[in-house]
Amino acid sequence: MGRYLLRRLVESAVTLVLATMVVFLGVRALPGDPARTLAGEEADPVAIDEIRRQYGLDQPVPVQYYRYLENLARGEMGDSLRTGLPVTETIRDALPVTLQLAVFSLAVAVLIGIGTGVVAAVRRRGPAEWGANTVALLGLSIPNFWLGLMAILVFAIAFPVLPASGFVSVFENPVESFRHLLMPSLVLGTGLAAVVMRQTRSAMLESLSADYVRTARAKGLSGAQVVLSHALRNSLIVVVTIVGLQLGGLISGAVVTEQIFVLPGFGKLTIDAVFTRDYPMIQGVVLVTAAAYIGINLLVDMLYSVIDPRIRVGGAAL
């Protein structure tokens, strides 16, 4: 357990360092001279040289990278070219929106996905399995941005029952927050739910045919007990891993969903930064995304070892 976690920690750290390099070099690969961009269109060569010195752009690339890391360590990611505000602060303001959206969507995905997955596995070859499979296939096949637009078309335009855009924090007004996040998180959650459903179903089919399920039935346990405390419990190990792997997809999905429902979150920040060629901001959001994703994966691995006693408590090898 200890050694496993240590190895994962080291691996994550290496990945994170590699990610900073990718971001750093990626921004260096952007077309155009950053000093010229920073100085503005009309700047004269002297001013550009001055900026180049000021930002250390005249230094060798490794030195620049070292400076970049130094600044990062201080939580310093430069100022937005568009607003002039520090990148760190802007990101900090946008994150809660995305986090609330992500938590809601994840809840939708897990509830729907695991629920239908279990039903599809237990009621084999019945209408329930057929229905669940159809929903999962549709969930995988419908692009969520289009689903979002259709939802707006139906629930905000044809039957105006939900707001089409905007964000209210759950801490300010829970009811309004829920109304504003309902459509976005359903839209974002269903795609993920489809994946979770399929994995749950196949994991459940696997564990339902396991010997320990036969034992549980031979003990006289009820169907629900067999499914929930024996089969599902084992399937969750697989499902947690899959959900973890899907979180990257959730971040991608949030970018689009925020764009459609005009949520002032991290994803919208990303897209706006790209369109305004706000390089410090691009660098910041991409790095934060990568760090978040690496962190989530580490967390999932730790969760995995909590659920599976074979990893948590050592002992006889399998």
């Binding site: 396991a210 320990y212 034992t215 031979a218 405390s229 084992n234 659920i307 006693p309």
Partner: peptide, 15 residues
């Protein structure tokens, strides 16, 4: 009551 052949797989590994 039943006792099965393979005690490794017949017992639930996570309980």
């Amino acid at each position: 009551a039943y006792v099965f052949q393979e005690p490794m797989t017949s017992l639930n590994p996570v309980l």
